[in-house]
């Protein structure tokens, strides 16, 4: 039976005994129907890895549902709430597997003077545009160096290179939530510094987007 109301789900899962076991079995079936949406295109379906992942995620989800049942406030369908937990568990595991061999960029910073803006930032740009781009890169770089901590720069670089927050957080000995806050603070600092220098993000970008037109 998977047509329970939210209240019935909560009551059955709290009941213990056969009633709880039946509810868990029904919830398991629901989660199993949703999981392919999370893992399709990310891992070969019906592979041993996929089957192991599905079993692991289902178990973890059912445990978390029971653990956090008291936090369910009924603002959505109970099954949507459970799917949400399953999706987070599945994607977290898939990201871990996908990124486990990839090291974070090394970020041992020093205060060496910048000297190497001789390279053309954009090969489609004309010489004047290249100079303007190099000058803007230099300016942005100076702001990044002056406003951000080493950890913020490292986190920002990782995110720009496509690292999932969860994985970057683990390498930086923090958690996803704290890393988001760290990056938010970094973005705010950069944005305010640009404003202080009379620049908007759009103006910075326009220097690079004009090239080759």
């Amino acid at each position: 039976m998977d047509k329970r109301t939210n209240e019935e789900w909560v009551a059955d899962l709290r009941a213990g005994g056969d009633r709880q076991a039946q509810a868990l079995e029904d919830l398991r079936a629901i989660i199993l129907r949703g999981l392919p949406y999370a893992i399709a295109e990310r891992i070969a379906p019906n592979s041993p890895e996929s089957e192991a992942l599905v079993e692991e995620v289902v178990q973890e989800t059912l445990m978390r549902v029971l653990e956090y049942l008291d936090t369910f406030e009924g603002r959505s369908q109970f099954t949507t709430w459970a799917h949400k937990i399953a999706v987070r568990a599945a994607l977290t595991e898939l990201r871990r597997v996908r990124w486990r061999e990839v090291p974070l960029p090394e970020m041992e910073m020093d205060d060496d003077a910048d000297t190497s803006y001789r390279e053309a930032p954009d090969k489609g740009a004309n010489p004047e545009e290249q100079v303007a781009q190099a000058e803007m890169m230099k300016r942005v770089n100076r702001i990044l160096m002056e406003e951000l901590t080493d950890k913020q720069r490292q986190a920002l670089t990782a995110i720009m290179e496509g690292f999932p927050l969860e994985e970057a957080a683990q390498r930086l000995d923090t958690n996803r939530n704290a890393l988001y806050k760290l990056l938010h603070d970094a973005r705010l600092r950069l944005k305010k510094r640009l404003e202080k220098e009379g620049l908007t993000p759009q103006e910075v970008l326009s220097v690079f987007e004009q090239a080759g037109r």
């Binding site: 060496d112 910048d114 920002l156």
Partner: peptide
């Protein structure tokens, strides 16, 4: 990593 290497890494120069 030097400043220039950082920006090269960040922006792919």
């Amino acid at each position: 990593m030097k400043i220039t290497q950082f920006i090269q890494r960040l922006f792919g120069f």
